[in-house]
């Protein structure tokens, strides 16, 4: 289930369980640090919990959560000198369902892809991951990042073109 679908009916507790893993990864991608990501996550859910009753239906809850996580991560980054890329690299996993050879190949491909994504300008990387990994639609992304739909569409397109160029050898 995508995160977008997570914000359907249910209590805050259910919402927390459905969204926390993806929200954590989003916080980790932004902050680059596991401890910071956990702090951000805790603070984000606490803020949401305090005002959960004001949430008009849960459909917009995911975009709300991501907006809070993003703003908190930016606050953390302002306080820190730089992101810790190594911790994100370490957190990429291969699928345990594959055999050893296939798993190694998949892991290699994942690392190559992640390298290509990592080299994107920050604003393109963030938007690409929000769309393709977190599963947010364009209007949710526009809300989270405070951008117009046209800008969201254009950035996603440019990001994908760059990834395609970087992964050319693996696609043929």
């Amino acid at each position: 289930m995508s995160v977008s679908q997570a914000g359907q009916a249910g209590s805050f507790n259910e919402f927390f369980h459905r969204t926390n893993r993806r929200a954590y990864v989003f916080a980790l991608h932004l902050s680059g640090n596991r401890e910071d990501a956990m702090d951000i996550l805790q603070e984000a859910y606490l803020r949401m919990h305090r005002r959960w009753s004001e949430c008009e239906g849960e459909a917009k809850a995911v975009a709300w959560l991501y907006t809070i996580v993003r703003n908190l991560a930016l606050d953390h980054l302002r306080r820190r000198a730089r992101r810790a890329e190594a911790e994100i690299q370490e957190s990429i996993l291969s699928s345990s369902a594959d055999g050893p050879e296939r798993a190694a190949a998949r892991e290699e491909l994942s690392r190559r892809l992640w390298d290509a994504i990592r080299k994107l300008p920050a604003e393109q990387r963030e938007i690409l991951l929000l769309r393709d990994w977190h599963g947010l639609n364009y209007s949710e992304i526009a809300q989270v990042l405070g951008l117009s739909l046209g800008t969201v569409s254009s950035r996603i397109h440019h990001a994908r073109e760059k990834i395609r160029e970087a992964m050319e050898d693996y696609l043929r």
Binding site: L28, A37, S110, I163
Partner: peptide
């Protein structure tokens, strides 16, 4: 491929 990237959870 991006969708199937797996990251360690919290």
């Amino acid at each position: 491929m991006t969708r199937s990237l797996r990251f360690a959870g919290p």
